[in-house]
Design a protein around this nucleic acid. Structure first.
Length: 719
DNA sequence: AAGGCAAATGTTTTT
DNA sequence: CATTTGCCTT
């Protein structure tokens, strides 16, 4: 095999990282420095040069997406499929371990994964049985607290009572929660990791087996590991295995969910003979963009230190646009995108990034109006949608009627007369006789111990499920899915739901059937359904169809990590929004916001726009924020202000000062004229702004209030 | 038990 | 502002 081809296209630092044979390697990979490439090439190097069997390699990532990408790229580089190599997410690998050693891990063979939605439902229910006031102790907070403890590796038994009421209450819930999970045979995401760690701690022989197997471990996004994941890695690595960790302390943006940047620092101490390599040459952005990124991140104190550089030229300056309000901001972005497309550029080469999802609405409206196709990332994932979760729950009950979590979800969806009181009675019966809800229901139905109407409803539900699960072994996954959505009445329920929503839900259910037909079972001689359900629990399916359409990408700064775009807009660079006001009190959280800014800036390859609004409507009321401190940290030499604006103090003075600033001559319209818009209906022209193709018109619509429209693209007609 | 209305409540997200 | 939750009525 040609060894040079592995090193050919790599720079010196990258080569060093790929070929190092020290016991442990730490690659501090700046944004756009070819981090994934180093990982992939290092694996290829291990296999081809060091003759390590793929069977002895373990590669860990955080998301399913990056794990798929890594596998693809290795296949591509080596021109063969690497059977036997373990590539997966921490959770996926933990699941695999627990499936193999379920008995030792203290689990049932068919244990189910409890996702955050079901977890919250469970916590809520437990709190009710503990008679805790939901107003005083928000269930979400309890859920969050429990997950936090687990992320730190703490079970309820490990936590000391201090007499603090908050702690005592949370502990009570935690204990109850643990007991219930055990009884239900479910484990949550954090438990997956913790349980896998405990498995190795308790069974030396099992740990020995995996230590003997894995000669090389590679970890991506190391700055995102939490305490349990770190401990798990250390244990597996033992004292023979070679470990490669790749990460960037400057891109640690998940501290709020348990990630510990400190793990990067501890690494040198805990893992033997560490070879630290910095990848600082950036292959993505212009030097102006890197200058801005470096300037922003330099203000952080807790850094390992790294400075990005590039051989690329200065490029264009970073554009800064001061908008009057969020509508103006969105309009400006749509306008720039319009120009970008008219220059023959692809829309999917452009991204609009924002701090919080709420910002996307206005942007969407502007893009819709400007006729620019867009796609929103994030938000709700496919398998998390209500209708999909319901359909999956039917499948779970069909597979195993004793799956209480799924039973609870579908017992009264669609509404069939089994209300809260009836369900309470079933729960109580189940608890007393220590059986599942299904068995309790059967007992209630046959013992006549319930009022007629409720009992009939329950009896017909049991009958329905029995019918649905009949002949399950002899049907295909697609047929099973069809059964779950048709016979359950789900399709009918959503068909009756009016408006866009119901239609979208039906479409999603059809999409689910399509997903079933595409599903490739890992173990082909075993039933597909349980495998499908497991996969779905671990991979929420990041997006829906429409992937290949040429559309502008909209997403939060968080979900942009790992991506790159020639053209990037960061919208809403304002104090209180970005940095978010929730992060202002704690210095640590502010530093994380700063890293988020760094992540955002470094997504841009050619051109970066920063926009902010002087006045923004948040939750219905107007607020005035000053420009973000992060923007002020960028040297003015690389910034170009698009418009020098007058300081606007109040909305009234803004309205007055811009009113009648233009008379709209040569537009075919006049001030005060009645007009009609294809979408917004009838309105009155209040004001004109600017001239030429970018001229805007302010219109007071009867239905939707004041809108600022681009005269050239808004198809206005005289009314 | 279910549907309708007023009141509350609003970061970031993967598994 | 818009969506979700809780209470109240049918």
């Amino acid at each position: 095999m040609d060894v040079t081809s592995i090193l050919d296209q790599l720079n010196v630092a990258q080569q060093e990282a790929v070929t190092s044979d020290r016991r442990s390697v730490l690659v501090l990979a700046g944004a756009g420095s070819g981090k994934t490439r180093v990982l992939v090439h290092r694996i290829a190097w291990k296999i081809q040069v060091d003759s390590i069997s793929p069977y002895a390699i373990l590669a860990v990532t955080f998301t399913n997406k990056s794990s798929r990408e890594m596998r693809e790229r290795i296949d591509q580089l080596l021109g063969m499929s690497l059977r036997g190599m373990w590539v997966g997410t921490f959770h996926g690998l933990a699941h695999r371990l627990l499936k193999a050693h379920w008995r030792e891990a203290g689990l049932r063979e068919n244990f189910q994964i409890l996702d955050s939605d079901d977890q919250l439902r469970l916590v809520k229910r437990l709190m009710k049985t503990l008679d805790l006031d939901e107003a005083r102790w928000p269930p979400r907070q309890a859920q969050w607290w429990i997950n936090n403890q687990k992320d730190e590796g703490l079970r309820a038994a490990h936590i000391q009572e201090t007499g603090d009421l908050q702690l005592t209450t949370m502990l009570r819930i935690y204990r109850e929660y643990e007991a219930n999970c055990a009884q239900l045979g479910v484990i949550d995401f954090a438990e997956l990791l913790l349980r896998a760690l405990d498995l190795w701690r308790q069974y030396a022989d099992i740990l020995d087996h995996y230590q003997a197997r894995f000669k090389h471990i590679l970890v991506d996004e190391f700055q995102d590991t939490n305490a349990v994941q770190y401990a798990w890695l250390r244990l597996l690595a033992g004292n023979k295995c070679q470990v490669t960790a790749v990460g960037d302390d400057d891109q640690s943006i998940y501290g709020w969910r348990g990630a510990k940047v400190e793990n990067i620092l501890s690494y040198e101490r805990d893992f033997e003979a560490t070879h630290v390599i910095r990848l600082e040459q950036n292959y993505r952005s212009t030097s102006n963009i890197l200058c801005a990124a470096n300037a922003v991140i330099e203000k952080n104190s807790e850094r390992l230190g790294k400075k990005l550089w590039t051989e690329a030229g200065e490029g264009e300056p970073i554009a800064l646009y001061a908008a009057f309000n969020e509508h103006d901001e969105a309009r400006y972005i749509a306008d720039r995108l319009h120009q970008w497309v008219s220059e023959g550029q692809r829309r999917d080469a452009a991204a609009i990034l924002y701090r919080s999802n709420a910002q996307s609405r206005v942007l969407e409206a502007a893009l819709l109006q400007a006729d620019i196709p867009y796609r929103i990332y994030g938000g709700q994932r496919f398998y998390e949608r209500l209708e999909i979760k319901n359909a999956l729950a039917y499948l779970r009950v069909m597979l195993n009627v004793n799956d209480d979590t799924a039973f609870e979800r579908v017992v009264n969806i669609p509404p069939r007369g089994i209300g809260e009181r009836t369900i309470d009675a079933i729960r109580q019966h189940a608890r007393q006789s220590e059986t599942s809800l299904w068995a309790a229901s059967e007992a209630i139905v046959s013992s006549q111990s319930m009022a007629g109407r409720a009992r009939n409803a329950l009896a017909s539900f049991l009958q329905l499920i029995n019918k649905m699960s009949q002949g399950l072994e002899s049907t295909t996954l697609i047929e099973q899915a069809e059964t779950a959505i048709q016979q359950s009445g789900l399709i009918e329920l959503y068909r009756r739901e009016k408006g866009e929503r119901g239609r979208a839900r039906i479409e999603n259910l059809e999409e689910l059937v399509a997903a079933c037909s595409n599903f490739q079972a890992e173990v082909s001689d075993e039933p597909a359904l349980p495998q499908f359900l497991d996969q779905v629990a671990l991979d929420a399916g990041d997006r829906q169809a429409g992937e290949d359409q040429d559309a502008v990408q909209l997403m939060t700064l968080h979900s942009a990590k790992g991506l790159e775009f020639p053209l990037v807009f960061i919208a809403g660079v304002e104090e209180n929004l970005f940095p978010h006001k929730m992060s202002l009190d704690e210095p640590g959280r502010l530093e994380e916001e700063r890293r988020l800014a760094y992540v955002g800036i470094t997504r841009a390859m050619q051109k970066l726009y920063l926009t902010f609004a002087e006045c923004r409507t948040i939750y219905g009321s107007e607020s005035y924020n000053s420009i973000s401190r992060f923007v002020r940290d960028i040297p003015s030499e690389v910034i170009e202000e698009v418009r020098i604006h007058n300081t606007v103090a109040r909305p009234t003075s803004y309205a007055k000062s811009t009113m009648h600033s233009d008379t709209g001559e040569a537009t075919g319209f006049g001030l005060g004229q009645q007009i009609r818009h294809p979408i917004y209906g009838e309105g009155v022209i209040l004001n004109f702004e600017g001239i030429g193709p970018r001229a805007r018109v302010h219109v007071q619509f009867e239905q939707v209030g004041i809108k600022i429209l681009i005269l050239a693209s808004a198809k206005l007609t005289a009314a």
